[in-house]
Design a protein around this nucleic acid. Sequence first.
DNA 1: GCCGGCGCATGATAGGCGTCATGTCCTCGG
DNA 2: CCGAGGACATGACGCCTATCATGCGCCGGC
Lengths: 247, 247
Amino acid sequence: MGYKRPIPTRLECPFEPQYHCRECDCKKRCFFNFLSGDPLKRFKTERRMRLYKPHQIIFSEGDQPQGMHLLCVGDVKLVKADTHGRELTISYLSCGDLVGDSPYWAGTPYCTSAETMRESVVCFLHRGLVESLEKSDPEFWRRSLRRISASLCQAMDRVVGMAFKSAEARLASFLLSLKFPPVPDASLSCHLRPAYSRREIADNLGLSPETVIRGLAAFQRRGLVRVSGKSIDVRDRSGLEKAAAER
Amino acid sequence: MGYKRPIPTRLECPFEPQYHCRECDCKKRCFFNFLSGDPLKRFKTERRMRLYKPHQIIFSEGDQPQGMHLLCVGDVKLVKADTHGRELTISYLSCGDLVGDSPYWAGTPYCTSAETMRESVVCFLHRGLVESLEKSDPEFWRRSLRRISASLCQAMDRVVGMAFKSAEARLASFLLSLKFPPVPDASLSCHLRPAYSRREIADNLGLSPETVIRGLAAFQRRGLVRVSGKSIDVRDRSGLEKAAAER
DNA sequence: GCCGGCGCATGATAGGCGTCATGTCCTCGG
DNA sequence: CCGAGGACATGACGCCTATCATGCGCCGGC
């Protein structure tokens, strides 16, 4: 963790099959790599690329979706505000991920906000483009269903975790997930991850930053991790897994 | 709450448009009411109706989906087991709802178990039938996406609730949701609900039964509800809403 | 270089909720 | 009719975690 990463110098989009992400050096498949022929051409001409600064809002909870977003370069988090000021990070997205697709399909306002965690390139597909892609290939439906269904299953896991797991167990799960990122479709995942502040971890787990700090300190005392600043190394993976399985 | 309801005397399935559910006397639309012609004929001949006893398992967490289930009559809950014995109720389903569709689409094992809460009629659609229905009409994809996306949004709400809301606030939300059932698509909802024991409420909220009991007692002292046995009447709706909004 | 701000760290305190124990009531079966 | 079991109810107790307070170290701006 704690990488220095270059700011993207040009707007690019991983739409080819077996797209090789130069930035994180992982070979991944873009959600839209099934496109070819006319739909691909239309996709290329009508999508709108946009560069976002760090901590910039792509859309806000409550907005009405006007189309779909595809994250091309960067990191984005989905956050949900509580009525009392606190906010919870729902998920982290990396390049190749769709952003905010489920409210689009549901036909409801966004139930989360999307915020860049660093400079990011996002490509916007307006409603007309999405609808034409739908018609061109049922693979679009299939992938969307698979993706969102997997997210739903993950969300259920999280509900159970919040209900029954202690702060330390949840923290352990979080640390383990950093290596195998908790993105909807693992085959689309990116292995590099941004460095998380204590507060960001706390916002993800629904804990106070102090509790996160104490948990990390306890793990370090037990030799499970090695902490220095924002860099957290997992030393004893199976030990952490045991901690994550505890109540 | 606390209704006596007749045991279904014959296997029936609400597949017609504007199906009128005789049992709960609400007009609702079945998920498959878009079918007509050959697909409808195939649906009628190939679906397999089955009667389940109360507290019978339809499928278990970890099983591989072989098709899709449609709940025709009765009440079903989706539950997820913790590794330490406790279990959490993820959602309640009523007639007209699909059961366990998202793991089918995700191509993963069931992430919840499905259990009848009373005598219920469930119709099973084997994989071949589902695949033929997919091909016949994109409306199938669209509805599935809408349904599952809406469930995902709800699940996110629940995660936030578990993270930030107190036991009383969550209990208040639960009581309010009994009148407007928390099913994925409100237009498909059934207004009658089974009566919930203290333990069932606790399993839904991730609380201990004692905490639920104390919460109900506190609400009754404040005049928000009137409790007698399994019957819980909401007396002061706006008061409960205020309690639900508290931290 | 100095200072202010922010993230990190640690202790003290208080409140919420799970757990255990006890007791009552209701229901069901014999 | 009676006894057993289960759901409901209430109190005592203890742990977990949020909150508040304090202090340290780092970094950027003047």
